[in-house]
Nucleic acid binder design. Sequence first.
DNA 1: AGTGCCGGGGT
DNA 2: ACCCCGGCACT
Length: 332
Amino acid sequence: MDKVTAAMVLTSLSTSPLVRSPPVRPNEGLSGSWKEGGGVPSSTSSSGYWSWSAPSDQSNPSTPSPPLSADSFKPFRSLAPADDGIDEAEASNLLFDEPIPRKRKNSMKVMFKCLWKNCGKVLSTAAGIQKHIRTIHLGRVGDSDYSDGEEDFYYTEIKLNTDSVAEGLSGLAPVSPSQSLASPPTFPIPESSRAETTCAKTETKLMTPLSRSAPTTLYLVHTDHAYQATPPVTIPGSAKFTPNGSSFSISWQSPPVTFTGIPVSPTHNHAVGAGEQRQHTHTVLSSPPRGTVSLRKPRGEGKKCRKVYGMENRDMWCTACRWKKACQRFID
DNA sequence: AGTGCCGGGGT
DNA sequence: ACCCCGGCACT
């Protein structure tokens, strides 16, 4: 048990590993240059990708939390693009992001929230929250130093970020512009999403069996879902990296999400957009019309005069090409 | 949007 | 026959 517990604690506590894996993945999809560039804080090249892949943050061993938040934060954004509302709302931010990515850290705050049912206590230090859980919920009194790590299951790390808050809010309720300023900063709801993921597994594992009543938990989870639901859908297309999901040892969350995203969205879109016709066409009509219509010709693939010489040198084309007939010079 | 070229003009 | 081009299938 101890080992297991310890492992879990480590996992939930140190998010760095989580963040680590994602950055590496991009290499797969893209050229190897990524790897090399990864370490280098190159700047100008592209945009979104670089910024988030830029592990320069990670190179920074000390100050685990800030870099973490920053990193984990970015991947999320890259996911967000998938979402309609969020994307747009953040589009500007993304662009804006490049120049001042690091500065954000300043506005970042790490808090620790107690997940114990009916207790939403938030403290600014891990030690504090641990002690709180130990004494209040676990009923351990006295030696405050002693900790078997169990407390770790009952609190979650929350990153408070002015920007992120705004974003999260926009994602949740994009309609309320006026409030964006007032409520978000005060309430760290969206924030939890990121941290949430970290403890999600823990939570689901422990909390579910123990009790599903805890309002706090439920609340967070819900929020999380709402917030995350959309991004995943988008991920597949561009960001296929599935950063957060893959990084987690727990696979139940990410795989499902990713999967749904790919098959569902396309299918739905087509089905809904084109209607049944689409499918019918495929199933029933696909061949008949084709044959009729495509008496034409498969089409030559090779380069033709037009492509070779270009419109400028039209006189160099073969006569057929000049006459818009089947090319005689470059026959397939 | 760019290409290849059929079908159909005009001279 | 020679030359052009509208328009469509493909990519």
